[in-house]
Nucleic acid binder design. Sequence first.
DNA 1: TATTATTGTAACATTGTGTTACAATAATAA
DNA 2: TTATTATTGTAACACAATGTTACAATAATA
Lengths: 240, 240
Amino acid sequence: MKEPGIRNEGGSQGEGYMHGLAIDAVIFGFHDRQLKVLLMQYKKSGVFALPGGFIRDKENLNDAAKGVVSIRTGLENIYLEQFYVFGDYARFDPTPMKTIMKANGVEAGDDHWLFQRFISIGYYALVDFTKVVPMPDQIFDGCDWYELNNIPPLMQDHNAIILKALEALRTGLDNKLVAFNLMPEEFTLGDLQILYETILGKKLLRPAFQRKMLSLGILERIAKKWTGGAHKAPYLYRFV
Amino acid sequence: MKEPGIRNEGGSQGEGYMHGLAIDAVIFGFHDRQLKVLLMQYKKSGVFALPGGFIRDKENLNDAAKGVVSIRTGLENIYLEQFYVFGDYARFDPTPMKTIMKANGVEAGDDHWLFQRFISIGYYALVDFTKVVPMPDQIFDGCDWYELNNIPPLMQDHNAIILKALEALRTGLDNKLVAFNLMPEEFTLGDLQILYETILGKKLLRPAFQRKMLSLGILERIAKKWTGGAHKAPYLYRFV
DNA sequence: TATTATTGTAACATTGTGTTACAATAATAA
DNA sequence: TTATTATTGTAACACAATGTTACAATAATA
């Protein structure tokens, strides 16, 4: 078995990678009126974890993060943001990794590098759900979307990492207009409002929301969208 | 010579500390209508650097950062915030450290741990200038305040780190009301306004500023302050 | 052609901020 | 003692942003 998070050839003691440092990525997507997160599931042991990886000896940190997200989503131009470093000593717990290795029939002594303390750099990514092709690999059975309010128990402090990422996403909403990265190319103001409401966790008033979004001057009205419903058809917009 | 950033006994190959990881602290103070940053100057070589340090094997990251700031300022309860991780490969340049070691008469091979790549976790601290007692040590000649718009050339990418810290400070101004951490216990609204203007780099209108600050409901009016000037005396306020 | 649900937007209310103006007042000078 | 001066505290108005209500427009269905 190759070690998890190793993106190409690496020896069993992690040669070629920085030790004690990892990247964890919270990849957000939006689909079916729900905010979702991409999670990995280890083979056999069934342990859930955030997509993650390590940093090559001569690799830029941000490039390593980009690599992690790319390899799991199949996408190239990704909105990515560093949001926090998780560095408590107590967060480090070798048990899940030992379980995973044992389940896969890998013999490893207690001094194995993956059982040592790690500090994780948290990144969140915003992707267009419709364009993602989730990619598991030799180590992971699963790479799938999970609804934000239905996340299974994750390895180590990964649940807490997701919460912190959501916080960062919220603060970025108004300041950096990050939400558009979660939308498909064409969308209605209604769709956009649902996304905002989901991220903020509260209802917004339609007239105020529409006025605000349109006043930003970053939306281009394209055509009407006939939904088949017995009502006026909404306009489709594109982000410019 | 002990290695820089080692806060107690450590061998010459950095035993007891996490490798490849460092903390850099941008310690902001406010005095004399100026925003200032605490900088270290190495003995003999005269190289300038941000206060920094390493993380002990079993130490929480945030505790390590607190330790760095405490040891340089003599303060205990410090407003501290993680703001960015600097992880470009190119930022790493062993030359200044070699110069420093050589100037201090330390023989060290190219494989010395301090000449390897480091990833720096940036923290900024906000302190009450009047309470700080800058503390150099065996390695540093100087530990002094420098005006933000008069920072000397620093080691590695430390100048860029300060700029990024300032950005983070600016965004925290309205959201988290961080400015009060830079004030002494008692201050006038005029003092506070000057601080805001310095951080934001622009003039503010007095009536609007005062109205806003007072409407926050976090200021307690104490007494008048007789400045000796030929004009009405301003009120002193305390942060609650 | 009436009904229904939803959209787009006008209109008004409320709040927040920008700006001008001026009375209050502490020290100094006449 | 009284005018002068500089600065503070705050009222008053203007304008912008946002919250809220209301309603006409319109796509599908009955």
